[in-house]
Nucleic acid binder design. Structure first.
Lengths: 140, 140
DNA sequence: CTTGACTCTGTAGTATAGTACGGAGTATAT
DNA sequence: ATATACTCCGTACTATACTACAGAGTCAAG
C-alpha cells in the first residue's frame, strides 16, 4: 500500500455506509472508478465522502439512484450547451420545490393531528379526516 | 351491487394507483378493510382517496410504508395518553423539518452547479466539488 | 340470458437497492 | 513467518413495494 488516499474501508466508515455499498455505487456509475494502488486497492480522494453522503441524502428524500445519477451527471453531458444544462437544473430545482411543498403539507397534517388531541384518551377522528382531506386534489 | 360507495376501481382511478396497489395497501394495514356490498365487492368512503394520496406523497418523500403506517397509526395507540401522542407527533415533525433542510441543501447545490456554468461548454469541476463539500459533516 | 367489464382470492413475478459470502490476494503487527 | 485485518471480484441472497396473472364469481346492458 502506498497511502496517498483513503481506502474503501475508511471511506465507508466516514460516509456511514458499508464497503459493499461503495462498490455497488461504483458499479452503478454513481461514483467514479478510483485509482488503484500497487496492490490493486482502491484509493479515494476525500471528496468521495461528501458525494456518497449526497447520494444517501437524496435517496432518503425519495430520489431513486437513477435520479441521483441523472442529477450528478447533469454537469457533464457531452456537447451540451450551457443554457440547456441550466435549463435542466432549473427543472430539477422545480421538482425539489414541489417536494418541499409536499413535506410542509404533511407537516401541517401532523401538526393538526397533534392538536386534535386535546382531551384525555383517544383522538377525534373528524379532525384527522379533515387534515387528510385538505390534501385532496393536489394531484401528485 | 348496492352502490353506497366507491368501487375499488373508482378509488384506484381517482387516487392514480392501480387496483392491485389498493388491495396491497389493505393487506399491509395502511388502509382499513372496507365494508363489502352484497356481492362481496369492496365499498369505499371518499376519504380513502386522500388517504392513498397521502401514502403516495409520503413514499415519494422517502418514507417507507412501515413509516407511513406508524405515522397514520399515531392517533390511535390504545391506552396512550394525549401528551405522549403529541410527543410522538412532535418527533415526526422534527424529522420532517430535517428533511426539508436536506432538500433545501440539495437545492442549493443544484443552484450553485447551475451558476457554475457561465462560459460555453463544460462546467468548472471545482465549484461542483465545493458545492458537494459544503454538505460534509451534516451527518445524516 | 349472454356478453363484456369489473371484482374476488391467492400466488407468482419483477425492479430497486442493497447485503452477505466464498475464495483468493495483500498489508501490518508481533 | 504467521496471525489478523483488510481488500479483491463475482455471485447469490434479501427486503421492499409493487405488478401481473389465473381461475372464479358478479353486474349492467342489450
Amino acid at each position: 500500500m502506498n497511502n496517498k488516499g483513503f481506502s474503501i474501508g475508511q471511506v465507508a466508515k466516514q460516509a456511514r455506509v458499508n464497503v459493499e455499498t461503495v462498490r455497488f455505487y461504483e458499479r452503478e456509475g454513481l461514483i467514479q472508478r478510483p485509482e488503484r494502488d500497487t496492490g490493486m486497492y482502491r484509493q479515494y480522494a476525500p471528496e468521495i465522502i461528501s458525494r456518497i453522503k449526497f447520494i444517501r441524502r437524496s435517496k432518503n428524500l425519495g430520489f431513486s439512484l437513477k435520479e441521483v445519477r441523472e442529477l450528478l451527471d447533469l454537469r457533464r453531458i457531452p456537447g451540451t450547451e450551457c443554457g440547456e444544462i441550466k435549463q435542466r437544473f432549473q427543472e430539477k430545482i422545480t421538482e425539489l420545490d414541489k417536494k418541499i411543498e409536499d413535506l410542509i403539507r404533511i407537516k401541517t397534517v401532523l401538526a393538526e393531528l397533534a392538536n386534535a388531541c386535546n382531551g384525555v384518551g383517544s383522538l377525534d377522528f373528524c379532525s384527522v379526516r379533515e387534515s387528510l382531506e385538505a390534501q385532496v386534489d393536489q394531484d401528485r
